[in-house]
Structures are given as structure tokens and as C-alpha cells.
Design a protein around this nucleic acid. Structure first.
Lengths: 337, 337
DNA sequence: TTGTACGCGTTATCAA
DNA sequence: TTGATAACGCGTACAA
């Protein structure tokens, strides 16, 4: 690999001048610029990014922590983030936190040790205090799908509560009254918020929430399956179920079919997230759209603007969900009493 | 951030000694090692990985090129690769090639410019010649799902032909004779191989392949939907279809239902890949398992062994697919003539 | 077993 | 507008 030194020798100028034309940050006479460029071409010179990083104290790398690398959800997130940074000549280092406090911390430390210029974090298990302390350190970061007091300007969140409201409201406005709710783990902020939204919709329609119509699942297929089973047992007369994410909706659908129900005739189901396989399901799932791709892009813009000083418009920090109507909801056979 | 220099001062030893205890590659007296460790703790010292890279000419980073970041397929691949390298203290830089020759080349160049120690490539559009030339350069790489003559030891592949054979053979042994085939783009090696396997199974059962029963799709849902539509038009009497991947199977299922067919009674379907949502489909998809996770891990091992000199067992380069029986295949209503 | 001194390939600060 | 030259933080011959 040719170095900047060889370029300077071939072009007959100093190291500094070569560096200048490469980064064109200082005026250089056109003639000398051409000489340098020619030498660069001739030698097939590419700057060594490691040396650049050491000298400039910029690694041009952004660390990302997500819960899982597989799964439909993070795929679209990572895809949009990678594209945004690639265009800016930055690269992305990815680590999985697995929704586990210890692993999330390790991931963050790992990324710090890699001298990332910034971090984009989708962490669930780590405490607010930890994040507040982290904010005092030197690596800036954005939080995805999480709101922490005092860090509001770096939180890119979904209005989860409104999402929960939309799901249940959709069902109510289709005539359902006995609505089961399969939640995510309630220690997760988004699960809690979605449930609050559900309660708000219920209240608005003067429907009393009932404990037996609530099931706390795990955000996975199994939890959805088990949840529907439990709900049906608790109240065989339910006409609809909202699942706090699409994977649980998939499990619920399987479970409902095993119970001999026809969908959506006997039971309507609404999901949450609108992951990319939700329309592969049968019936195609009516769900709440989580614009995770846009949110990832916004997080990238935050970094580009605040860390790399790009001039960009203001950052949108709160995103609104919307209902995606497909085929998993029908009016109930008889209006529940 | 504390540097090695401050540690050496606090511990009262030289720079070199600190470096030695950190990398424990040279014998150091226990007493001095302790002094150093203490100083490290007291200062909260973490080595600067950029400086390490520059001095050692090792970036401890591995570049990965995949077609897409989203999608179920690459998620599980990346997940296993990341885990393998994390354990070894390496990190992974990811780039998307989008099955496009220009973008794939750019991704590779991008990763090279990042001084990756090795590359793991899942590239489709780039030519064999390009890869052969690349092999002559200084960054070692492994190829995933692709076989190139002369680079056989660094190719980790699936026996795609056998997979195609298995899919069709499964159908044939269930009594099907009129079997449609929805292929991936035939310029892709795996699509071609899977089709060859299909033909081999047909021949073995003395069934003549018919051109009208073949449709070249795009490996996406749309192609599957269009393919089934076309196949049904060409021969309404087909009793089964094999789809060269699961996403096309999803499209085919939708299309079949729109045509009023009941599944699997009227039409049996077999997919390929066994992506993670294939059992969310209805009927749950019978498909050919592509052990992409294991293959990713094997590629990681290749790198660990050949680039980082870890002592590991031999590398398995060819993986065998197997059929996953679920619920999308039934015996045909009447045996086709 | 330990220390000295140089090299890794750039960027950035001063002078000129 | 250009050129020396000192960082940047660490690894590693070589010498002691």
C-alpha cells in the first residue's frame, strides 16, 4: 500500500500539502493540486483510515446496539441506518444486546473501546441512571424507542401509548366489546405504554377493563399462543384480541385455529409493529405501523448533525403510529352484552 | 482517556512493560505485573484500539457484505457471525451489496479502505474473475453460498442442487406428477442449481419436464404471486408447486387463494430456505432447510483460523440441506395422468 | 526481565 | 500558499 509519503515524494511536494488536497480544507494552488492528484492516481493511493483516525481523533464509525440482529424488526432498522451512514462515508459497527442488562452494558463498552464517534442505542434492560451517567461521558449517543428524562433531545421515540389506543379503538369502533389483551413484558416501557393506550380507548368507550382479559406475554410467538389459550379459557366469549406485537399475533392465530375458531369471523385480531411478514400471515394481519426505518434514519441524522456537524433540518423526536387495515378484523357475530 | 504512558508513569515502569502485561506475550515478573494492573485499574485505562491497529497492522475488524440487511435470511446469518467474533474480541462491519454488481464492488472497496483484517462475502452479481483477482490482493476473504474455481478452500456453500432435488422428490413421493416450478433469477448460481436438482428428481421418477411448468421469478413475494398465476393459466391441472425460496412461496400461497384453491388440498406447495417466518404462514410451509446460521459460523471459523491463527478443527465447506415437513403438502386428489 | 527508541500513516500547528 | 515537524497511542526490535 502506497502511503502519503510516497505520494508527496512523487509529486515533489510536502506531506502537508498532500494532506491538504486530499481533505481540501485549505486553499491549494491548482497546479500543485493537479500534481498531487496525478501522483495519487499513479500510485493507486488510498488513505489509511486507521492512521487518519489516530491523528484526527475521529474513527468515522458509529456503534449500534440492538436487541437482536435477526428478526424482522431490526433488519429494517439496520438497513436504513447503514444506508444513511454509507452515503456519508461512515461505517457502522453492530452489537446485539439481547434485552439483557449485562449484555447491553458489555455491548456498549465494546463499542466504546472501538472508539466510535457516536452510538445509536436500542436498549431495554439497562437503567435510566446508567444512561444518564453514560451521557456524562465523552461518546455522544441517541436513544431509540426510549425516553429518559433529561436526555429528551436525544430520544427518538414512538408514541406507543397512542398506538395501543389505535389498536383497541379500531376494534371498538368495529363493534367489539369483549377484547382480550396480550401484552409484552410489562417491565419494558413500550409494553407498558401500549397497554395504557388500550385502557384509554376502553375508558373512552365506557368499557370496563377486566383483569381476566389481560395476559402478559413475552413478545414472542409462544407467548401469543399461550396468551390466546389462557384468554379463551378465562372468557370463551371474547370476540377480539389485541396483541402487543405481530409475533405474538402469529402465535395467537395458530392457537385460535387449534381451538377451532375461524378467523376473523369468530375472532378478530390486531397486531402491533407491522413487521415485514405481517402480510404473509393468514388472514393478513391488521396492525399498528411502527415506522422503525424512519426512526433509524432520524437517529442517523441526529448523529450526522450533532457529531459530524452536517447542516440538517431539525430532528423529529416523536413518531406517530397509524393503523394498517388488512383482513384480520371483522365485526363480531353478535354484539357482546 | 488515560494512555499507556500515564499508566507506565504511575506504575513506575516503562511503556514497553505496560504493553507486555496488557498483551501478556512476554514473560513479566509477577510483582511488576501487579503494579501495572493496579495502575490500570486506578486510571480506568482502556487501550485505544485505533492506536493498537496502527501499530500492529491489525484492525481486529471483519467486513461483511450481504445482499440485504433486512429480510429474514441475512438476519440469522449476521446474528451468528457477530456472536462468533464478539467472543473473540473482534468486531464486524456490515455493508449491503443489494445484489448489484456496482454496489457490491463499492461495498468491498469500502470495507478494504476500512482496513478490515478479513472479509466475509455473500455476493451474487460480481464476476468470478473479479473474485479471483481480489484473492490476489492482500485482504483474505471467505465466500458464502458461492463456489469459484481455484478458491474452493474459501467457499462455504450449500448443496443447492440437492436441495432442489429434495423438494421435488418430496412432492413426487407424495404422488404428485404435474409439478410447477417457480425459480429464482436464473443468472444466480443458486437458482440455477436448485432448478437442476428439480430436473434430476423429475428424471429419476420418469416425469418429463415441461417448459410451461417453469416460471422464472425474482426471489420475492411478487414473483411468487405472478408465477403461480402464470402456472395456473398454463396448466390448471397442476397439483403442486415448488418455489425456489420461501418468499415466493408466500406470494404463491396468496395467489392460489385468490384463485379459489384450498391449500394444501387443491395445491401443494414446497418452499426453500426455511426462513424464520415460514411457519407463520398458513398452511405452515413445508420447505428445504438452508442452515445459513451454521454456514455463517463456519465462515467465521475460517477467518479465526486462517487470519487470526486460532487453533480450530477443519473447516466444513459444503453443507447439506434437508426437508422440513410441515403442512403445505398433501397427496393429490386424483393422481395426474 | 526490563527499558530505549523507532515506526505505524495521518492530521494539525507553526513558521516561512 | 507551502513546508517542517510535532503529535496521535501503541507495538516491538534491540539492547541492557
Amino acid at each position: 500500500m502506497a502511503t502519503i509519503y510516497e505520494v508527496s515524494k512523487l509529486a515533489g511536494v510536502s506531506l502537508a500539502t498532500v494532506s491538504r488536497v486530499l481533505n481540501n480544507n485549505t486553499p491549494v494552488r491548482e497546479a500543485t493540486r493537479l500534481k498531487v492528484m496525478e501522483a495519487v492516481d499513479k500510485l493507486g493511493y488510498h488513505p489509511n483510515s486507521v492512521a487518519q483516525s489516530l491523528a484526527s481523533k475521529r474513527s468515522n464509525s458509529i456503534g449500534i446496539v440492538v436487541s437482536e440482529l435477526n428478526g424482522p424488526f431490526f433488519g429494517t432498522l439496520l438497513s436504513d441506518i447503514e444506508a444513511a451512514f454509507r452515503r456519508a462515508g461512515k461505517h457502522v459497527i453492530i452489537a446485539a444486546g439481547h434485552s439483557d442488562e449485562k449484555l447491553e452494558k458489555e455491548s456498549i463498552e465494546f463499542l466504546q473501546s472501538r472508539n466510535c464517534d457516536a452510538l445509536i442505542l436500542h436498549v431495554e434492560a439497562v437503567t435510566d441512571e446508567f444512561l444518564t451517567e453514560l451521557a456524562a461521558k465523552d461518546i455522544p449517543f441517541v436513544l431509540l424507542n426510549r425516553f429518559v428524562d433529561g436526555l429528551s433531545d436525544r430520544c427518538v421515540t414512538l408514541n406507543n401509548q397512542h398506538g395501543g389506543y389505535l389498536a383497541t379503538n379500531y376494534l371498538l369502533s368495529h363493534g367489539h366489546q369483549r377484547i382480550g389483551y396480550i401484552s409484552g413484558p410489562m417491565w419494558k416501557h413500550d409494553a407498558e405504554q401500549r397497554y395504557f393506550g388500550h385502557l384509554r380507548a376502553l375508558a373512552q368507550h365506557n368499557v370496563n377493563p377486566q383483569e381476566r382479559l389481560f395476559y402478559e406475554g413475552d413478545y414472542h410467538e409462544e407467548g401469543g399462543a399461550a396468551g390466546l389459550h389462557a384468554l379463551l379459557k378465562a372468557d370463551p366469549a371474547i370476540t377480539a384480541v389485541v396483541c402487543a406485537n405481530d409475533e405474538m399475533a402469529a402465535g395467537a392465530i395458530t392457537s385460535a385455529r387449534e381451538a377451532g375458531l375461524s378467523l376473523p369471523g369468530d375472532l378478530s385480531i390486531v397486531g402491533f409493529d407491522n413487521v415485514n411478514f405481517s402480510h404473509y400471515m393468514f388472514p393478513k394481519l391488521t396492525t399498528v405501523d411502527y415506522p422503525i426505518g424512519s426512526m433509524g434514519m432520524m437517529a442517523s441524522r441526529w448523529v450526522l448533525k450533532n457529531v459530524y456537524q452536517q447542516k440538517l433540518d431539525d430532528i423529529q423526536t416523536v413518531f406517530e403510529p397509524r393503523i394498517i387495515e388488512r383482513e384480520s378484523v371483522a365485526r363480531p357475530r353478535v354484539t357482546a352484552q
